[in-house]
Every structure is written in C-alpha cells, then in structure tokens.
Design a binder for these strands. Structure first.
Length: 893
DNA sequence: ACTAATGACTCAGAAAGATATCT
DNA sequence: CAGATATCTTTCTGAGTCATTAG
C-alpha cells in the first residue's frame, strides 16, 4: 500500500538528487503556541510534521495483547506538491501519545524554567557557555556518576552506565619528557628520520613560497615553519630528532592503548574481526583486558584547558596515506564501434566513468557533459579527431571488467581476506594515530581521497568533473615543532609544506581540484580535541536555555519594528527557532541551488489561510524541506509584507544577511549563533519526549528502545533528517504482511479445530492456504542452489509439501492448541512491531541527530534511569565519541 | 569601515563493510 | 551448518556554518 508513494513524488523530487525521494509531502498543520507560552522559555520548537504526517499516527506499542492493527495510514498525500492545508495529524487511531507530542510540543514550557535552574547543579560544568572556570581536578561530574573511580583498575561500568569507561590508571601526564627506551615506533621513526633529513634538505630548496598562503592563519606567534626553517636547523634537527625519538616513543608507549573499548568486557564491543562471534568475543575480552592495563586520558575529569587559542603543545604523526598508483588493465574502450587505444592516464579516467554506468549519475546530462569535457581534455589531437561525442563512447567493456573484478574480490578466499585486513591494520597502526600532548589519539581520515569523478549532490553544476589525484606535493603537514617529519610516502615527491601551527587542529590539508576547497586530515571524534569541542557545543546550547525566553521576547517585539532590517531579522530568527531551519549562507552559481532561512526566496513560501505557511525548498544536500505549519499571527502578517510585490526569485529576506543575524545573536549571549538553535531545540525536544515515557507501557528493553527511537525520530523530523527509503521496502513490507496473514490463518485453523470461531471466513483461509503451498514449492525450486543440486524438482516439491503439512498438523490436546494460538499471537505481535518500526522510520534518518545534535548526557541519564544498557543505543564509535557523557540519572539538559 | 574571500570546523546522506538473522 | 539476505556500523567525502582576514 503505501508503497508507491515515494515514487510518485512530484517533480520536485527530481530536483533532489535523483535517488533521494523526497519526503513525503503530506503535511499537517501544527498549531502555534500562544504568545504567552511562547514567551516562556519553554516554547516548543516546532513542527515539521511532514514526515510525521506521512504515516499517520504513531502507533502505540501495544504491549498488550491485541496489537492495534497497523494501519498504514493514509499516507496519502502522496504527491506532494501541495499539501493540503490542514490535515489533521493524528488520525483517530493514534493514541494519546502521539497526538500529544505533536501538538503539544509547545505546551510544556514550564519545565524548562525549572530546568534551567536546576541545570547548574547537575553536571559538571555548569557554566554557561564560554569558558568555564571550574576547577576540580578529580572527577568532576558531580552527578551520580557511577563512573569509574579514578584509580580502580578495571572498573567496569555498570551496565547502565555510559560510555566508555575508562580504565584505571591514572592518566598519564602530558609530559613528554622521558628517558629513552625502546621504541615501538621504530620503524616509522627510523625511516622517517632518514628520510626526513633528505626531505628537509630538499625542502630547503624551496623556501620561498611559504609566506604566501598559509592556510592557517598564523596568529600570534605561532611558528609556521616552512622548509626553510627546517632547513636551517637541519643539522641540528637531526640530532634532536634522535633524542626526541626516544622520548617520544616512550611516551607513546605509555599512552598507547588509550583508546579503549572499555566495555569490552561486557559482552559486546564490536571490534571488527572476522572471526566467528564466539571467537570474536574472546578476542575482545582479551583486548579489553590488555587495554585496561594502560592509562587513558580522562580529560573530561580534569579541568578544562583555558581557551587561549592554542589547541595543542606537541603533535606527532606519520602523515596521511596515499592511494595506490593506477594499474592499467588494458580493457578496450570503443568509440562508434571502433577500438580507441588509451594511455594509462586516459584509461584511468575512462574507468572512473565506467564505474558509474549502472547508476543514476550517468542519467544526468551535467555529469556526462562535465566528464566528457575532462576526458577530451586528456586526449591527443589524433584521438580528438575520432572521439567527438559522448554518446558514441562505449565504456561497457571496462564496466564489465570492473564488475568481474568486484565479484572476484568478493569471492576471495579467507586467507586473502585475512591478509588484507592484516595489511590494513598495519597501515592503521602507523598512520592511524597521532600523539598529541603526549597522548595517543586516533586520526579520523588518514587516507588521502583517491582520484575519481566528483559526485555532487542534487543538481550540482560540477558533477562528473575530475577529482585529481593528490600527491605529497599537494599536501601541507602540520606537526609539532622539532618533531620528526614523516618521509614522503612517494619516492621523488616532497611535501608541499610543513607548518607548526598549534592554533588549529588539522594534521594535514590539501586543496581539492574541483571547487578549490580545502580538505583536511583531522583527529577522530574520540579524540580529546574533538570531544572538548563537542561538549562545549552542548554547553553553549544549554546556555541558550537561559536566555531563550528573552531572545524570543525580543524578536517577537521586533516583528513590528519600523526598520525593515529589524523586522526581517526578527522573523528569520523566529523561523530558525521555531522550525529549526539552518541559517542559509549565500552560495555561488557553481553550486547546487539550495537554501536556508536567510536565502529563502519568495517562491519557497506559500501563505495559506489561517496563519499557515508552507515552506518548500531544497536545503543542505538538496534534501527537500516541505512543511505546512501554522505560525504566529503577527509573524504571518509581517511575512505577508515581505512577499508583497516581489518576484518568485526574489529573496524573502532581502534586507538581511547572515552576518547581521549572527552579530545580533552574539550580542544576546556569548557563543551564540544561528546553528545553536538547532542543537538546543533538538536536545530539548529529546529530553521532553523521553520524559513522557509511560513505564507501564514500555517495560521490556526492546520496548524501551522502541520508545527511545520514537523520541529520536521526533528530533529527526524536526531537523528534517531524511534518508532514501530502502530499495526493497515495498517488498519487505508486503512480506511481513503476508507473514502476519499466515500466522493469523494458522491461528484460525487452531481455533477451528477446537471449535472456536475463526476470525476470518473459513473459505478465505482455505483459499489462502491453497495458494501458499505452491508458492513455497516454487520458491524452493528457484532457490535450490548448489546444495540440493542433485535433487529433482519433484523431490523438492515433495519435501516442501511434507514440511508444509507438518507445520499444519495440530496436536489433539486442547491445551496444546491453545498454547499454539498464544505462540502465534506472540509472533504476530513481533511482526507488527517490526512493521510499525519500519514504516515509521522508512524515510527518517536517526543517526545524524544522534551523532550531532543530541546531548549524549540526556541519553545516558535516561538509560540509567530505565536500566537500558547504553550500548543498545550508542554504537561503539558513539560511546568512544562521548566518553564525557557519564552523568547520573538526574542530568538535565 | 565595509565587503568579499578565506579558512577551519561541524554536519549529511550514501556507500561500503560487518554482523545478525533467516532458511 | 552454510549460504543468502537483512540490518546495523563505519567510512567517505560533499555541503553547510561562521569567525577572521584581506582588500
């Protein structure tokens, strides 16, 4: 049923990038809160009901027997475009909660107030944004943290506790000094030292360019070192290096293992290993223990560094890894039926294209045109005589070759796979970590992006252009002063530049060829440097909670200001706050046409009746935002004047710039900018939703998780986080339906046997049953693979039939039959839940908000309170990312 | 003094890979 | 238990935000 809708979405869809179906268009209106409420801090963020509307109300979980039948709501409006103005959100079926949540979002203002006050008390740093003075060396999280005590050696977190626990061992200190000792890093360092020397020498040759553009602003006295410098010191350097090396190694060693899995102990950390599960588990445990031995940098328990603009004191790493050189395959490329011989370079580019032959990319004219231009640019003049039109190029042989290769790869033996992973691991050990201020940290993206075709999202004018291969001479490294400079991994190549800029956090950067943009190598999210920034982000958002009331009052007051600028600013801010829109910076012509709040054009908004507006535009990543919502009457009236007399392509907020808006916000609160509203509204929404949990209804862990996901979903809808529906969604859904029907029929058969009335007509049951057997047989025949190869179709058919009949045989005892009915009921329930969950989440992406917008402490507190293991909600990498989120159940955002 | 351009960092969904579940 | 398939995680890299600098 609902199936189809995605497909039909209106043209708009196309605009979104081909594969992303637009969100379902249905819209609903939401009511606005009243002024008064609004004034309060608590005003609720708003309503992007679009997705929500789509499937109608959320079904209740039904722990109780009789699950409500899942009715797929009318998802009706399928076709987007114009939403019907006010469709009532919840349908009858929905129950209270869903309805509540939607409409009310506003209502609960009160709590926020209270929260605010309490907030301070709760977690560690209470302070508001900006910097915090707090001291407290030891564990500061006052909450109830069960957290690991600082010294106990292996604390295992209690189940519910959070995130990674830390290991024991006092954190190593930051000082690098130390005696020498062995060196684990020997190879790298050794090599490097040699190479580096050479490097440096080479570097000295080209000292001049340094001054020109340094990516990093060298502020204050950061030393930006160019090769020159290095050179000068060269000799000395070497020496120093040696010494340093030793020290360093030790340090490293000490620190090693900082990255722990910590909960490895408990059952499921997921390291990826391809051993069987059992094995894997064992392994993990071992690892876990090992790690326990080493110290960890529990930065979150310590006082924050003061914010003086420097991001680190010492920084050591081995540089990024470059993609392997191209290996020509010699497969023919044809033009107009004739083979055209290609050089390796040409062949490489042709191969990039061939790889996309079966994708939607090649359906875009821009992709083909851009590619062809690039490709032609590589051809010799003789070749150009022949190759003139893209349409006559035939990359199919190459494409076939690629496919074969892919299959081969998939089929490679276990040994090969193991060897490959071992190799990967080795590289990761060397390049995947950096030592920063004496602690070993994971590097996020230490692999340089391979060359290929640029795949922009949506209607990007540059899609299909060639992304050039990046060489060491394109890459600038940022490394601690005096540290060993890693040798260039490619012989004959030198690094573009070496800098020592401790006001930034990148380890390396290069410029990408298509848009001339910067690409950086950063530390992983689990690193202290990222973690602190992340925590700070949430602290700023929490700080907003204290001023949100004033800010709201402020902009509401300005709706009628005499200055157009002020009025526009006020309304824009209102939309950002209420609808969680992005701010919308200006964009160039050479980018996809997407907008945010400040860049909205008149064509993106429709003023309906009853103070309702419909926003329909492509936002970040060309994701369609479609929402019909009722807004404040005063805002509506002003908006009307902004639209008046303008062309569809004119800016809605023509007198407003993003800079003005942010400057205004900065004045209201330190650290405040437009994006903070998204973080704030997302987190506060999660907290409010979670607070609504009815513990009677959601009892099992699975039910609680389902509940959590629903709360998470509210946030995802608010932020318009979407995903393409699974490819075979329709199929999966109807499969589930079929299964449910079958279970029901089986139940009925049981009922008939014991003389009870079945739920459906006996003939219907029989006819459905009659259809099932042949289907099963057919399926078994088609599926017979190597395994039953020797069996004839007849035999299979016979076997299947036997199995089928066996499954329909009922015991004679009445009690047993009743048991059976109950069992089926359970299975049905399970399927219903599954279906409901799938339906609710088919186009909603929960991940983005979980990773970026939701204060993890809210989740941790909820988990503890409800005895849900955190690892059911946070994956390993999320737990690693939020080691600082271990708070007590009383944490309030 | 003000824009426009830079630079650095956060946030996005898809693709790829790993694991779990089904048959 | 094996292989297929569904689902969950991680990787990848494009696309925003926004403060700072350049002109």
């Amino acid at each position: 049923m609902e199936v189809k809708q995605e497909i039909l979405t209106p043209m708009k869809v196309e605009k979104t990038n081909g594969n992303v179906p637009t969100p379902p268009p249905t819209t609903t209106t939401t009511t606005v809160m009243d002024d008064d409420l609004f004034d309060d801090e608590a005003s609720p963020p708003q309503p992007n009901k679009k997705l929500k509307a789509e499937n109608g109300s959320i079904k209740k979980l039904t722990p109780t027997p009789k699950p409500a039948p899942v009715t797929p709501k009318p998802t009706a409006a399928v076709n987007g475009k114009k939403p019907i103005p006010k469709k009532k959100p919840v349908d009858s079926s929905s129950d209270s909660d869903s309805s509540d949540s939607s409409s009310d979002s506003d209502s609960d203002s009160s709590d926020s107030d209270s929260d605010s006050s309490s907030s301070d008390s709760s977690s560690s740093d209470s302070d508001v944004p900006k910097k915090k003075p707090i001291s407290k060396i030891p564990n500061k999280p006052s909450g109830t943290v069960s957290k690991t005590s600082k010294n106990s050696p292996k604390t295992t977190t209690t189940t519910t506790t959070t995130t990674t626990t830390v290991k024991s061992k006092p954190a190593p200190k930051v000082k690098p000094e130390q005696s020498s000792s062995d060196d684990s890093s020997s190879d790298s360092s050794d090599d490097s030292s040699d190479d580096s020397s050479s490097d440096s020498s080479s570097e000295e040759e080209k000292p001049k360019k340094k001054p020109s553009k340094k990516p990093a602003a060298v502020k204050k006295e950061i030393t930006v070192k160019k090769e020159t410098t290095t050179t000068t010191k060269k000799t000395p350097v070497k020496k120093e290096v040696e010494v340093k090396k030793e020290t360093k190694t030790t340090t490293t060693k000490k620190v090693k293992k900082e990255e722990s899995d910590d909960d490895g102990e408990d059952e499921k950390t997921t390291t990826k290993k391809k051993t069987t599960t059992r094995k894997r588990k064992l392994k993990e445990e071992e690892e876990g223990e090992e790690e326990e031995e080493e110290g960890v940098n529990k930065w979150w328990d310590k006082e924050d560094d003061e914010d003086d603009g420097t991001k680190w004191t010492t920084l050591i790493h081995n540089g990024p890894v470059f993609p392997p050189a191209y290996v020509p395959h010699g497969i023919k490329f044809m033009y107009d039926g004739k083979v055209v011989k290609l050089t390796p370079k040409q062949e490489e580019v042709a191969t990039f294209y061939a790889n996309y032959l079966e994708t939607d990319h090649v359906k875009k004219q821009a992709f083909k045109d851009n590619f062809f231009k690039e490709f032609k640019g590589l051809l010799t003049s003789e070749q150009k005589e022949i190759v003139k039109k893209m349409d006559k190029c035939d990359f199919s042989h190459i494409h076939t070759h690629l496919k074969t290769k892919k299959e081969q790869r998939k089929a490679r033996s276990k040994e090969e796979k193991d060897a490959e992973t071992a190799e990967k691991k080795k590289i990761q050990e060397k390049h995947g970590f950096a030592t920063i201020d004496g602690f070993k940290e994971k590097v996020g993206n230490y692999m340089i992006e391979p060359p290929g075709l640029f795949l922009g999202r949506g209607q990007h004018p540059k899609t299909g252009m060639l992304k050039q291969r990046i060489m060491p001479s394109d890459v600038t490294l940022n490394i601690g002063e005096g540290e060993v400079i890693p040798p260039s991994p490619i012989p004959g190549e030198k690094w573009k530049e070496i800098v020592h800029n401790n006001t930034v956090t990148w380890l390396a950067f290069w410029r990408e060829s298509v848009n001339g943009g910067f690409k950086y190598v950063w530390l992983a999210p689990s690193s202290k440097i990222k973690g602190q920034a992340d925590r700070k982000k949430f602290e700023v958002a929490r700080g907003l909670k204290n001023c949100i009331g004033d800010i709201r009052k402020g902009y509401q007051k300005s709706f009628n200001d005499e200055s157009t600028e002020k009025r526009q600013l006020a309304v824009a801010l209102y939309l950002i706050d209420f609808l969680a829109l992005r701010v919308g910076n200006e964009k160039g012509e050479d980018q996809a046409d997407t907008v945010g709040c400040c860049s909205l054009r008149v064509e993106h908004i429709k003023l309906e009746s009853n103070n309702t507006i419909t926003l329909d535009f492509l936002g970040k990543d060309s994701m369609r935002y479609l929402n019909t919502v009722q807004i404040r009457e005063d805002a509506y009236k002003v908006l009307k004047t902004f639209v008046k007399g303008k062309k569809p392509t004119d800016l809605l907020f023509d007198s407003l710039t993003v800079t003005q808006l942010n400057n205004h916000l900065k004045k209201q609160m330190t650290g405040l900018s437009a994006k903070v509203f998204r973080t704030y509204n997302a987190s506060i929404t999660l907290q409010k939703e979670l607070d609504k949990m009815d513990t009677k209804e959601f009892q099992s862990i699975d039910e609680k998780i389902l509940f959590y996901n629903r709360c998470n979903r509210e946030v995802a809808i608010l932020c318009n986080h979407q995903k393409a529906p699974p490819k075979n969604l329709a199929e999966t859904m109807s499969k589930i339906d079929e299964k449910i029907q079958e279970l029901r029929d089986l139940q009925d058969l049981c009922r008939i046997k014991i003389g009870k009335t079945p739920k459906s007509q006996q003939e219907d049951i029989e006819s459905r049953e009659a259809e099932r057997l042949p289907k099963l047989i057919q399926l078994a025949i088609t599926n017979k693979k190597d395994k039953d190869k020797e069996k004839t179709d007849k035999e299979i058919s016979f076997d299947v039939k036997a199995a089928f009949e066996k499954s329909r045989t009922l015991p004679d005892a009445k009690g047993k039959i009743k048991e059976k009915i109950a069992k089926y009921e359970e299975q049905i329930k399970k399927q219903e839940i599954l279906k409901t969950g799938k339906d609710e989440l088919k186009t909603v992406a929960l991940g983005t908000s979980k990773i970026n917008y939701l204060d993890p402490r809210i989740t941790v507190a909820w988990c503890k309170k409800n005895k849900v293991p955190v690892d059911k909600i946070f994956t390993k990498s999320l737990r690693d990312k939020f080691p600082w989120s271990d708070v007590g159940t009383d944490y309030i955002f």
